[in-house]
């Protein structure tokens, strides 16, 4: 199978990218585009460390082929710049080692976009998609709620 050049719309820019059809979006981001903020973890759709935002919704980039992202708007952690959820993570100290943090932030960012008034059940349901080995869950929940309160 020859390599093919596709154009991915990432963080507001069109990025021509050469991939195999079987390359995951995670691989294209990290290995082809140098966007290493999306972290490889389980590579099986379980841990959420590779979460990005596709057309406004969270997506585990290890579960998506790069070719499937053609025509969609992809936002990675590099595309957020001092956003409210990033500020809240710092303020609430919602991380320790930081490996899961980009994935958590992208999921929280999508949640705040889609359900800015989410109730506790919705927050729990969305955030169950990510795993934090350092167990910063309470602080992460505080960070989401701080943004919802407009702090």
């Amino acid at each position: 199978m020859p390599l093919q050049t596709i154009t991915l719309h990432i963080n507001g820019e069109n990025r021509p990218t050469t991939v195999r059809a079987s390359d995951t979006l995670l691989y294209a981001l990290r290995g082809r585009l140098g966007l290493t903020g999306s972290k490889p973890g389980c590579l099986n759709g379980d841990c959420g460390a590779c979460t990005v935002n596709v057309d406004g919704w969270p997506m585990k980039s290890c579960l998506m082929l790069a070719v499937e992202a053609v025509g969609k708007k992809v936002t990675t952690i590099e595309g957020l710049h001092d956003s409210p959820i990033q500020q809240a993570f710092v303020k609430e100290f919602a991380f320790q080692c930081g490996y899961c943090t980009p994935g958590f932030i992208m999921n929280c960012h999508s949640l705040l976009e889609q359900h800015p008034d989410a109730d506790d059940q919705t927050i729990k349901e969305w955030l169950e998609s990510n795993i934090c080995r350092c167990t910063s869950y309470i602080e992460i929940e505080k960070a989401v709620k701080a943004v919802m309160r407009g702090e």
């Binding site: 199978m1 195999r20 059809a21 079987s22 390359d23 995951t24 691989y27 990290r30 490889p40 082929l65």
Partner: peptide, 18 residues
Amino acid sequence: MAGKEDFQIVLPFDFDYY
């Protein structure tokens, strides 16, 4: 080319996509 860490990320076979 795939770096050392990325061998785990890629699928170990090729396919055409339609």
